[in-house]
Design a binder for these strands. Structure first.
Length: 600
DNA sequence: GGGGGAAGGACCA
DNA sequence: TTCCTGGTCCTTCCCCC
């Protein structure tokens, strides 16, 4: 931004943050980056000329490969609305026009209009610092409903130019305008001008556009003549290379403050062209994925085909608050988050297996603690049970932020179409249950359990060696089989997984009957284990207040998940004990089944 | 060596 | 007085097979 007294801005920001906890944390992070840079420098110093030459050769092969992927047949446009939130607020309240204004509050600013930017006020700047930079700054609270409704209008226009346009946020999108240009015999420049005019006519908002053969370059282009302008890089290799050659690496999406510093300080790379010149060192010092990325940046290649829409990977909720150190207060916050997140999960019809607790301490240190369960969860109660354990383990704490995330969603879409247990049993066991057997527990409640045979060979081998020998996880102790886990049906497994298992999923309406579960007679049998797969969850629920099954070995989980998608976690001993269970104090417990079920 | 989980961090809007 | 939120991806470390 021209006309900004950068030095003054830096000085004010420094003066205002100096000595604060935030500042101290920044210094800590800065030291870590420096350490990383030093480490990479020393690694670089160890490289011989021939090392670098060899890496250069490897990079050349990569470059050759990348060149074959260069696609100049599509015309991409990146559209970015100018100071979007601020512009919407000004449209709704014209008295704000021409005055420095920021959307956000004293703690943080979402965006600032161009008048405010002249003072150095920027998005992601705390409001109190912005106030110092620009004492007349007007604050407006964000109103996302309003922005969403404007965004929808703008998207109507986008849709006319590319029905498959990619919306990146409320104020940004990528459009493939190739067909528009061809069918209407218009240049990309004309299309961009027309689109921007239509957006303005419909909403009163101005936007900037960038046009290039791929999204990576188009994104950079939209920034060139911002605000209310456009810039075009023609679909021509030489033009792309010329544009990229002097382009500062920081302009590229994916290269942020830290990466920029590392590239500059370790490799003296500052513009994209340097990435090709330094390909040998890059290949030597960075991972293959990072090297590929840096090389494609140097070549101006990136994102020319329409990507397939990926399903969501995680869903989270986090809140910043004024410092809390009291346990009750922390758990109350957690409950709020669990409640919020459960609602979100419900509205998106998602269930996940991994729960991640995010904590930001009063000193701005960020910690995450996660837990992957053997079953899917989405209800508030379940989130809370597991997240509470994660939180408990971190106490005492003084926090300024807490967040909760669920990920590891059930990827297999067929899983979602599976029948519930209730449905399964209401139509009988006719659907290809194969080798499975259904045994009913005594009493009226219908409880499925599975039969799995443990091969004699496996048991023998286990007995002989005292450990697993053939990929199974059965163990022999005192002449009886304990620690028996399920595995898949591929050859070599001793335990056979009934296809029935794939028909199951945890459902709430079965919880009552699950609580009446009785352990069938398998405990007395010699060479046969019937394990009800609801058992693990039953235990989890039963001891929700701090009694946890110790995780089975990771390998077992892996195996089990791979084949069954519903792993059994925990250990059930043949002699009727719940073995290796851990209570809330971390003590290992051994309960008899009788004792377990006689509780309350 | 590869797969998976945990933790941390970079980056983006 | 006061430094966000929600998401993705990558890396590193470690365990287990």
């Amino acid at each position: 931004m021209d006309g900004v007294d950068k030095e003054k801005v830096q000085r004010v920001v420094y003066e205002m943050s100096k000595g604060s906890k935030y500042f101290e944390n920044e210094k800590r992070r800065e030291a870590l980056v420096m350490q990383k840079i030093q480490h990479m420098k020393s690694q670089s110093a160890l490289l011989t000329d021939s090392d670098v030459k060899n890496h250069e050769k490897a990079a050349d092969i990569k470059i050759k490969n990348l060149e074959t992927q260069r696609d100049l047949s599509r015309i991409w446009m990146h559209v970015d609305l100018d100071a979007f939130y601020a512009a919407v607020e000004t449209l709704e309240n014209p008295t704000l026009a021409g005055k420095p204004m920021a959307v956000g509050g004293m703690s943080m600013i979402c965006t600032a209009n161009y008048e405010a930017r002249k003072f150095g006020v920027r998005a992601a700047m705390p409001g109190f610092i912005a106030c110092r930079l620009c004492p007349d700054l007007i604050f407006v609270s964000p109103n996302f409903e309003k922005y969403t409704s404007y965004s929808e209008k703008v998207r109507q226009v986008f849709h006319d130019y590319d029905p498959n346009f990619l919306a990146r946020s409320l104020d940004e999108a990528y459009l493939d305008i190739t067909d528009q240009c061809l069918s209407r015999n218009m240049s990309s420049e004309e299309v961009a001008e027309e689109l921007r005019r239509r957006v303005y006519d419909l909403t009163g908002l101005t936007c900037s556009a960038g046009v290039a053969p791929n999204r990576m370059i188009a994104k950079v282009c939209s920034d060139v003549n911002k605000p209310n302008g456009q810039f075009i890089v023609p679909n021509d290799r030489a033009a792309v290379m010329a544009f990229v050659s002097s382009l500062p690496i920081r302009k590229i999406g994916g290269i942020g403050k830290v990466t920029e510093r590392i590239l500059k300080e370790v490799l003296s790379v500052s513009v994209c062209e340097d990435l090709i010149d330094k390909r040998g060192l890059i290949s030597a010092l960075f991972s293959s994925i990072s090297t590929d990325f840096f090389l494609s940046v140097g070549l101006g290649i990136g994102g020319s085909t329409t990507p397939v829409e990926e399903p969501r990977k995680s869903l989270s909720c986090e809140r910043t608050f004024s410092e809390i150190s009291h346990e009750d207060g922390l758990f109350a916050k957690l409950e709020e988050l669990a409640d919020n997140l459960a609602r979100e999960l419900e509205s998106e019809e998602l269930q996940g297996r991994t729960i991640t607790l995010k904590l930001k301490t009063a000193t701005f240190e960020v910690r995450t603690r996660s837990l992957t369960l053997p079953f899917l969860v989405c209800r508030k109660e379940d989130l809370l049970i597991h997240a509470s354990k994660l939180l408990k383990a971190e106490l005492p704490l003084s926090l300024r932020l807490m967040g909760l995330r669920v990920s590891h969603f059930q990827g297999d879409s067929s899983f979602l179409n599976q029948r519930t247990l209730a449905e399964y049993f209401s139509v009988g066991n006719s659907a290809g249950s194969g080798s499975s057997e259904i045994s009913l527990a005594s009493g009226s409640s219908v409880v499925p359990s599975f039969t799995a045979e443990v091969s004699d060979k496996s048991a023998e081998l286990s007995q002989k060696n005292g450990k697993n020998t053939d990929g199974t996880n059965s163990k022999i102790r005192d002449g009886t089989l304990v620690d028996c886990f399920f595995q898949g049906t591929d050859s070599g497994s001793a335990l056979d997984c009934p296809p029935l298992l794939k028909e199951m999923r945890w459902i709430d309406d079965l919880q009552c009957s699950l609580c009446k579960l009785e352990i069938p007679s398998f405990l007395e049998t010699e060479r046969q284990e019937h394990v009800d797969f609801h058992f693990a969850e039953l235990l989890q629920r039963r001891y929700a207040d701090g009694f946890d099954l110790e995780a089975g070995s990771q390998g077992v989980e892996t195996q089990t998940r791979r084949h069954l998608s519903q792993p059994y976690k925990g250990t059930l001993s043949k002699r009727g004990h719940i073995d290796r269970a851990i209570d809330s104090k971390g003590k290992r417990k051994c309960l008899s089944i009788d004792a377990f079920f006689s509780k309350d």
